[in-house]
Write a protein that binds this DNA or RNA. Structure first.
Length: 292
DNA sequence: CCGGACTCCTGGTTGC
DNA sequence: TGCAACCAGGAGTCCG
């Protein structure tokens, strides 16, 4: 499940490959992959044709490639999306939903394939608008509701902690709320909660400020470690921008570790259903704290 | 504001 | 061996 580190790997790979490249051809094999595009496929193709890409940007799990100052190609990988860079004449992956031929002034022709098994991901053209907090900072219209991610230099720690304290919900629900803090998905939420010894359903209102700060620090540590490793995976579903597996699962302490000993206390990691997904945690290290 | 239920979706796995 | 049921979950919507 691509989260911030995996999406950043894709962004960085695209940056070196398609910045300054011009679109020569676009093929949409499955229109369902345009779910975030507000017009028919023909419109998507027409608006891409002939444009030149600027350096790709990212906020949380959203990725976009500016096409001038007005619009951008918006990419979300969803659950299973991949962006594969291929030689122009390479065979198409069976699950390729969209394919874009580009010409780079120095590197020559290249194919950018959007491959997505479950079709929760998408490509779209978005209008660039002011993000609202930092003047002159532009994001696609599809991204305006997404909060800055914790690796963003403009992420406001104090603002996040204040908004978190005002929430009346469980901490994991808050971590997964992309309008509060972006880039965190199920894997890194479980890992950061394990690292900071917080139970997934700990009420946000009862989380002390020092503990909330620790949690935010652990979120950054976990994301930073995964970034350094080039993204994390467990089933080779995720491939980096070159089609090479970028997943490393050896450093997971809680996610998917149910039935295995907690690396910290040796007791068994359990998995519970929460928010229609699995929550992995150590029932000893991560207990709901009551009072004050 | 909150939470639960539901939708989108299909390949791989499990179970009979 | 064959097939159906089940599972994975990011994001959005709707409803109470």
């Amino acid at each position: 499940m691509p989260e911030l580190p995996e999406v950043e790997v894709v962004r960085a790979g695209l940056e070196s490959a398609i910045t300054s490249a011009t679109v020569a051809a676009v093929r949409v094999f499955d229109e369902r992959s345009l779910r975030r595009h507000d017009a028919p496929a023909e419109d998507f193709v027409d608006r891409l044709m002939g444009t030149t890409f600027a350096a790709p940007m990212r906020r949380g799990k959203f990725l976009w490639v500016p096409m001038g100052s007005e619009t951008a190609l918006v990419i979300h990988l969803g659950m299973s999306g991949q962006v594969l860079l291929r030689e122009p004449d390479a065979s198409l992956d069976r699950l390729t939903r969209i394919s874009i031929d580009v010409a780079h002034p120095e590197h020559g022709p290249l194919r950018v394939d959007f491959v997505d098994q479950r079709i929760f991901g998408s490509m779209a053209i978005g209008r660039l608008v002011e993000s609202g907090d930092v003047p002159g900072d532009l994001v696609p219209s599809q991204v305006t509701h997404i909060a800055r991610d914790p690796m963003d230099p403009n992420f406001d720690d104090a603002l996040f902690l204040a908004r978190l304290a005002k929430r009346n919900t469980g901490i994991k629900r808050a971590l997964l709320d992309q309008t509060l803090i972006s880039g965190i998905g199920n894997i890194y939420a479980d890992e950061a909660l394990w690292a900071s010894r917080v139970h997934y359903d700990q009420p946000t209102g009862s989380l002390s400020r020092p503990r909330a700060k620790t949690l935010l620090a652990e979120v950054r540590l976990v994301l930073g470690k995964a970034l350094a490793e080039g993204g994390t995976s467990f089933d080779a579903q995720y491939l980096n921008v070159n089609g090479e597996s970028g997943y490393f699962s050896h450093s997971l302490n809680a996610y998917g570790q149910q039935g295995l000993p907690c690396p910290r206390c040796g007791r068994m990691i359990v998995r519970e259903q929460f928010m229609n997904r699995g929550s992995h945690f150590c029932p000893w290290c991560q207990r709901v704290r009551t009072g004050r």
